[in-house]
Amino acid sequence: MTEANFSVVVPATTANLGPGFDSIGLALALYMTVDVEPSEAWSVSYDGDEYGSLPNGADNLIVQTVLKVAARYDKKVSTHGLRVHSDIPLGKGLGSSATAIAAGIEIADQLAGLDLTPMEKVKIGSEMEGHADNVSAALLGGVTISYYVGDSIDIVHIRKPEMGAVILVPPAALRTEESRGLLPGQLLHAEATLGSAASSVMAAAIARDDWATAGKMMEQDIFHEPYRKHLFPDFEEIRLAAKEIGAYGMTISGAGPSIFIAVKSGEEARIADQLMEKFPYYKGLAVQPSSDGAVLK
């Protein structure tokens, strides 16, 4: 068991990229930093107001993850205080809960001296999340393409995708549970086949850094976008405008309510500015992929 001052830095993530539903994640260069130091009780403080509504004691998701991971290995950890600074919009489809879980896993690994492998961390996080897309990207960085079922997980990891991204963030958050409630219980076999084909071509294109093809495929999703896009003001107009100014493709970021736009590296700021000017309801974030996942400092 360790008592020490250290920090954990975890990237934001976007998941699905359209047809890669619950299986493809991309780490983004927006970060949450958690400073850890000994304390008489578990406490969590957040810089800024956006995260102020979250629990600040042992019921906080980061702390709960630390305790669950330690208990999984019959370890106990002493109480600590956590100070959190985050650039990641809360509840906006950028993996804020997966980021918290990833941070908790890293903190537990350090405090309890678990010496977990990266894949052990991903498996634990996937069990907690119920799917592997966000948490695998948060822990490993880059692009992760995952197959997770029961006790089995397989991941293809692409550390340094050569692209950029624009995230259009609306003012209001959206609960993932609410967004998932819009999805159908089943799809026709022919529809699912088309969705699987789009996901397969997109994954292969990403592996080859062919983002023109990947962008085209991310707009062929049939698994969730058709059922959620009505929640996004000007969705189709944004897609058309993004294409006209040179974007590869556009889709929903995670479960929403943000929009993810894949662009050529170096074009992020230009495209973000132009889309914000035309669609002022959204705040445009120009970002790069994060090749690093969660790291200790």
Score class of each variant (00 low, 15 high):
residue 141 G to H: 12
residue 132 A to K: 09
residue 244 E to T: 08
residue 71 A to E: 13
residue 55 P to R: 13
residue 1 M to Y: 05
residue 264 K to S: 09
residue 134 N to S: 12
residue 148 Y to L: 11
residue 283 K to L: 14
residue 142 G to E: 07
residue 6 F to N: 00
residue 234 D to W: 02
residue 25 G to M: 05
residue 266 G to V: 08
residue 40 E to S: 14
residue 122 V to K: 08
residue 12 A to S: 15
residue 180 R to Y: 09
residue 296 L to H: 07
residue 14 T to Q: 01
residue 93 G to M: 02
residue 69 V to L: 03
residue 140 L to A: 11
residue 186 Q to N: 09
residue 280 P to K: 00
residue 213 T to K: 14
residue 143 V to Y: 03
residue 233 P to Q: 11
residue 211 W to A: 05
residue 53 S to G: 08
residue 233 P to Y: 05
residue 41 A to G: 12
residue 129 E to W: 09
residue 287 V to L: 15
residue 54 L to S: 10
residue 204 A to H: 01
residue 280 P to F: 02
residue 53 S to R: 14
residue 85 H to Q: 15
residue 72 R to A: 03
residue 270 R to A: 00
residue 278 K to Q: 14
residue 224 H to N: 03
residue 80 H to C: 13
residue 44 V to Y: 08
residue 220 Q to M: 15
residue 148 Y to F: 15
residue 15 A to H: 10
residue 1 M to N: 08
residue 206 I to F: 00
residue 180 R to T: 05
residue 46 Y to T: 03
residue 36 V to Y: 02
residue 237 E to K: 15
residue 139 L to H: 03
residue 68 K to H: 02
residue 253 S to M: 05
residue 140 L to T: 08
residue 110 Q to T: 09
residue 131 H to R: 13
residue 280 P to H: 00
residue 152 S to K: 15
residue 226 P to I: 10
residue 122 V to C: 15
residue 290 S to M: 12
residue 83 R to V: 04
residue 101 I to Y: 06
residue 286 A to T: 05
residue 12 A to N: 13
residue 144 T to K: 11
residue 286 A to F: 07
residue 271 I to F: 02
residue 96 S to F: 13
residue 33 T to H: 02
residue 82 L to Q: 13
residue 254 G to T: 00
residue 278 K to A: 05
residue 251 T to V: 07
residue 67 L to M: 03
residue 18 G to C: 01
residue 185 G to I: 11
residue 165 A to C: 14
residue 252 I to M: 02
residue 45 S to N: 14
residue 297 K to N: 12
residue 193 T to W: 12
residue 37 E to G: 07
residue 28 L to V: 09
residue 224 H to M: 04
residue 37 E to N: 08
residue 157 H to Q: 12
residue 138 A to C: 14
residue 111 L to C: 10
residue 79 T to C: 08
residue 13 T to Y: 02
residue 116 L to E: 11
residue 252 I to R: 00
residue 46 Y to N: 05
residue 20 G to D: 00
residue 226 P to T: 11
residue 181 G to F: 04
residue 192 A to Y: 07
residue 198 A to N: 06
residue 161 P to Y: 06
residue 297 K to S: 12
residue 12 A to Y: 09
residue 5 N to Q: 15
residue 218 M to Q: 08
residue 236 E to G: 02
residue 179 S to E: 10
residue 137 A to E: 06
residue 222 I to P: 06
residue 274 Q to T: 05
residue 30 L to N: 00
residue 102 A to N: 04
residue 21 F to N: 01
residue 196 S to T: 07
residue 23 S to C: 09
residue 81 G to K: 13
residue 251 T to K: 07
residue 11 P to H: 02
residue 149 V to E: 13
residue 277 E to Y: 11
residue 227 Y to G: 05
residue 51 Y to A: 13
residue 128 M to I: 14
residue 36 V to I: 10
residue 156 V to N: 12
residue 93 G to P: 03
residue 200 S to C: 15
residue 202 M to C: 03
residue 133 D to R: 02
residue 178 E to L: 12
